[in-house]
Design a protein around this nucleic acid. Structure first.
Lengths: 146, 146
DNA sequence: TATAATACTTGCTTTTGTCAAGTATTATTT
DNA sequence: AAATAATACTTGACAAAAGCAAGTATTATA
């Protein structure tokens, strides 16, 4: 494989690690950790999703996941509903409060992302959107992520 | 600002958070944490760089940075050289062992990145390299990063 | 019916990161 | 020149985040 591509990608990964770090740190000035925010996002996206499914998608440790869900339930953001067919499984859903939190996090995420592209004009923004969609598509191609 | 772009970017950020998580976790199966690896990388790139400069570039807490450097010095990977003109400042450099470690981490990073694009043919790889360079360039434009 | 697998939980520990105060040195102000 | 502020880094105390392994309950399989 060409060394050049590898270096380009690694450079991009370093760059984007810092970008995400900055974006996420600002979001976290809300009271939710990045992982909590991601869990809330997933539950909001897909009501009834299980802890297991989220854990697999986000690559979170099982025990940690369990505690995070417990914490969110305790805080009243998430509710668990035990399946009748299989009592091991709990469907997760947001409470009204959880949806409010999700909305807050979304708003803050939006702001952060807007900040990221605030220096670009309309044309450049459209260009960027096109580029990242292509990047994602290429990377997903073989890796069979959602 | 158009909602669409914001959503596209946020989707990409979620996606890439997981990508980086996977890549980094594999690298960390070497004995160095992500932050240590990044510090070693920076010192390797720019011999004589200060803790302060790295801290600013990587957005690391000052106290944490100090401890990381101390740890790397203790492990024999990094050496500090006090400036004669300004005794507050220490120029950092890798030792021979540090360069070896950097080489190892580089090799593992290369492997991880190769794995990321292993399903792409040559044309797609070149395409990807072009895309991410453009993305980086656009995002850097106003943010005045390195 | 015993064994294995699945979904989740819990105890224990380590790693990672933050904050604030502290030291030493250099630059700036009065 | 002495006092004050700023800079570069360190240290202590603490908290948040994450990982690992063993454990419980339930369901599927041999």
């Amino acid at each position: 494989m060409k060394k050049e591509l590898v270096n380009t990608l690694r450079d991009f990964n370093r760059f984007y690690t810092t970008v995400l770090g900055v974006v996420n740190n600002h979001i976290l000035e809300s009271d939710y950790s990045l992982t909590e925010a991601r869990i809330i996002y997933e539950v909001n996206e897909q009501e009834g999703i299980t802890a297991r499914a989220i854990k697999e998608k986000l690559q979170i440790d099982e025990g940690y996941m369990s505690r995070m869900v417990a914490k969110l339930v305790k805080q009243g953001a998430v509710k668990k509903k035990q399946s009748k067919e299989d009592k091991r499984i709990f469907a997760l859903a947001l409470t009204a409060k959880g949806r409010q939190i999700a909305a807050d996090i979304n708003r803050q995420s939006d702001e952060q992302v807007k900040n990221l592209v605030k220096h670009l004009d309309l044309k450049e923004r459209e260009q960027l959107a096109g580029l990242i969609m292509q990047v994602k598509q290429l990377l997903e191609k073989g890796n069979a992520e959602k």
